[in-house]
Design a protein around this nucleic acid. Sequence first.
DNA 1: GTGGTCTAGACCACT
DNA 2: GTGGTCTAGACCACA
Lengths: 132, 132, 132, 132
Amino acid sequence: MATHTAQLFSITTGSSEPIYRQLVEQVRRLVAAGQLAPGDGMPSVREVAQVLALNPMTVSKAYGLLEMEGLLARQRGMGMRVAERAGAARSTASRAELLRPTLERAALEARQLELDSDTVLSLFTLILKEQA
Amino acid sequence: MATHTAQLFSITTGSSEPIYRQLVEQVRRLVAAGQLAPGDGMPSVREVAQVLALNPMTVSKAYGLLEMEGLLARQRGMGMRVAERAGAARSTASRAELLRPTLERAALEARQLELDSDTVLSLFTLILKEQA
Amino acid sequence: MATHTAQLFSITTGSSEPIYRQLVEQVRRLVAAGQLAPGDGMPSVREVAQVLALNPMTVSKAYGLLEMEGLLARQRGMGMRVAERAGAARSTASRAELLRPTLERAALEARQLELDSDTVLSLFTLILKEQA
Amino acid sequence: MATHTAQLFSITTGSSEPIYRQLVEQVRRLVAAGQLAPGDGMPSVREVAQVLALNPMTVSKAYGLLEMEGLLARQRGMGMRVAERAGAARSTASRAELLRPTLERAALEARQLELDSDTVLSLFTLILKEQA
DNA sequence: GTGGTCTAGACCACT
DNA sequence: GTGGTCTAGACCACA
């Protein structure tokens, strides 16, 4: 099951977005969506590091930040779990707001590429289906 | 017109995306869209730096990379211009491809937030109209 | 009485000070003060673990270190007792020296907070009375 | 001046208190006391690391945490400075509260050592004078 | 087994 | 020059 959770992560090493931050943001989204529920055990630092071919310290940094944020809780010697006070899955509207910044960036790029809304929406629809 | 061009740029200092790369990618998009056509003069390093409140060296670095890439050409004593061989505005399909990575990222985040396509497309449509 | 002894301990799980070391140092102080006299029986590992909600191995580690140090002695099948050669209660001056490092740390912090001696001593006096 | 600031730090490598946390807490105290005022430049990571014989990453971790806390602000390429919104020097009473946890610990240890208040206060007074 | 801390050293982004 | 990120590898505390 821990292995399963580790598989949820998808990092892009080529991005300028630091790896540890990609991890932090993905955990935030998974918790917001309820895919990671309060009390769930997180995969170990070493396991995530191995699955994603990262240095354990990079994963540890992400976990540490999430702990400071109150989203994860440490169980001494027994790994991390999703904090009870992490809040249950949020409403659809609330989760949609978390997606807004990325969509705004996409809209900005579309405008700079002088692509009309129909073209952009068609392409986006296609991509959403591909991933489904 | 040079001033006008500088206004096309929109940088986010708080982002982890390096500023110089934000500039490079925006110029790429503006050239692909034809908003910057071969032969057009670019605003001076100093001007862009002042308008966007950046360090001139940051702007200079972006220009340097774009020159190496062949998109911009240096005219001694006369600033930079868009290179003749920069290629004319590309087709809509070609430009849409440049937008694909950003849309794929948005789709990934949407899936992690467990948002269905309809919700995401509605929000995106709204954002596209806001910016228009 | 064993139970009573376990109550003497006061550990802080949130501290960065390892739990086993908190235990070791408290036993050292209790022996120095004579509250634990040579020959006295120590509460069992299991009991301390239960009373303080700790993992028994943590308590066992502390006891092991104190045994190596010569402060505790193992009696096969009968738990641990304070070693005869643990030395009787020390003099006041000798015990005060054990407190010096903590007071020096407090003095350092006070200086960094730019608090004058009178303010610090007033607060400390207050705290000493509260605990009495 | 930067060098002078670095000299304000005093870390104990032998302690179980992590070095980066010792740094964080000292900066908090120095800011609370007004010895580090909003706008002041902090000594560079490398300088602190050299003066205290630490690894730069350790210092960097402390600075990073203080930035997240809002006490320090990064100036890209120009080092860190004390944040404007760090708040001016606090009142004496407010600063004294920051000292309370350490004094409470000292009082606990004193009680376990069965030292009476007079003895403890005498020793503390002595230590406060030594450091002055 | 778990996470935490630290070091040494590399490379990057920015001024 | 500044800080940021990452790796590799070591040792510690805890279960």
